[in-house]
Design a protein around this nucleic acid. Structure first.
Lengths: 145, 145
DNA sequence: CCTTTTTATGTGTATATGCACATTGTAGCA
DNA sequence: TGCTACAATGTGCATATACACATAAAAAGG
């Protein structure tokens, strides 16, 4: 019997996931009117920074599985936010943002800022800064692997 | 140009999501041999605590969308880990754990503990306790809504 | 008691996620 | 050069997630 409560109260997976769902829903609503999901918005960010990145580079930058990058590119391609070029290395595909993608991005920036502010207000200044700090620290560990 | 880096470095959605993916993968591997995902394991936990819970109660306990609960129950039903009974209120469906579900749960407890220990070792004691504390605090905010 | 409202749930659709497996192209080496 | 190892990507499959819409049953109110 006790073990149920052990898991329910102490599982870091559940906690992380619960907060992730909550945060995701908040950003999803904020970005909805411009027609991208927050995951797509973060992918556009990485694509802009890389300018011309292949799938492995995006995978590495976003710390997201290679095959997930592949799938997540599809709605962005379909909606004309990004395009893909071949490379000299015929195995490789190079992803770039389109003009329309940039426009969407700029529009979304305000909504993203609003989402950040809304979340900060919801959880409070102290949680906000502590959450940022500890997540940065954990991501650093992840990046070193 | 600057805004790309603003989003890339400061987006709490991305940070939360990145850590969530990482943590999920770790617990997924740990629980793989007993044949349940970490989400399923956390659902079994809630089902055990509630003993007889309907979908809304599970939704509330797990802070997961009602329709997500519905879908996530399907593999658990298929695999015989849980069963569903009707209630006096014919709209309602009451979910309980099976004997096999309990056995799976007990086996999984060791793996869950290992996953917790592994994550703690990976990210370090300080990150572990800070992450726990701030997530608890944020979940408290979520619960109050 | 009948109508209206509320409640509990299910389904269609779309995105997100990652493992296992397959394919194709490049590089390295004898 | 030709074979082998490796590297980049795609696909099948399964789970996870939530919104919009639909249905059926209970509760409320006259």
């Amino acid at each position: 019997m006790e073990r149920y409560y052990d898991v329910a109260q102490n599982c870091l997976f559940s906690k992380t996931r619960t907060v992730s769902r909550y945060v995701t829903n908040l950003y999803t609503k904020a970005l909805k009117e411009i027609g991208v999901t927050p995951v797509q918005y973060s992918m556009l960010t990485a694509i802009q920074i890389l300018r011309e990145g292949n799938i492995n580079e995006l995978s590495s930058a976003l710390k997201m599985d290679r095959t997930t990058i592949n799938r997540n590119l599809k709605p962005l391609l379909r909606d004309g936010h990004v395009y893909v070029n071949e490379s000299k290395d015929k195995r490789e595909r190079v992803v770039s943002i389109t003009k329309e993608g940039e426009e969407i991005y700029d529009k979304g920036y305000k909504e993203w800022q609003k989402a950040q502010e809304e979340l900060r207000a919801e959880i409070g200044e102290e949680n906000w800064s502590e959450l940022n700090a500890v997540l940065d620290s954990v991501i650093k560990v992840i990046a070193e692997k």
